[in-house]
């Protein structure tokens, strides 16, 4: 993905990518402890201002599908999506999955976050999107 590092993220405040490390940006309510993704500034349950939280730790695949209709935002055809469990934060997040590992996907498998050029953003520009890939994906 030559030149991919220069492309903008598809949206702000969703993920950070430093070298090989990619993390989702969440938040946590200091009052009730609830974690959020995407990040929310105010806890909807008690109105407390939240703290920034990077969603690290283990990840496993809760469910997945491969979308085979015409993709929105010029995503790859076909493209897989899924819900991934982040037990450390008690969160289940919806995310793109690795379009090159469709045949490997199984519910319950360990996953890790990656990012790369995928599709276009709301303004039609090429952009970087985060995606989960099986933990054993090389690279």
């Amino acid at each position: 993905m030559t030149g991919a590092e220069a492309l903008p993220p598809f949206a702000e405040d969703i993920f950070v990518s430093k070298g090989k490390g990619v993390q989702l940006l969440g938040s946590r309510c200091p009052q009730c402890g609830r974690a959020f993704f995407p990040r929310t500034g105010i806890c909807p349950d008690d109105g407390t201002a939240t703290e920034a939280l990077r969603l690290d730790g283990e990840a496993s695949l809760y469910s997945f599908t491969v979308v085979r209709t015409k993709p929105p935002f010029a995503l790859p055809a076909p493209y897989p999506v899924g819900y991934v469990d982040l037990p450390k934060h008690d969160l289940r997040v919806f995310m793109l999955l690795d379009p090159d590992r469709i045949d490997a996907l199984e519910i319950g498998m360990p996953m890790r976050l990656a990012s790369g050029e995928m599709g276009v953003d709301l303004k039609g520009r090429r952009c970087i999107r985060p995606y989960f890939t099986p933990a054993d994906t090389k690279g």
């Binding site: 599908t65 979308v67 993709p71 919806f94």
Partner: peptide, 16 residues
């Protein structure tokens, strides 16, 4: 923007 079209949200329920 991460690809969630309505059929996908029900396909995810189906698979689970």
């Amino acid at each position: 923007q991460l690809g969630l079209v309505t059929p996908a949200s029900f396909a995810l329920r189906a698979r689970r």
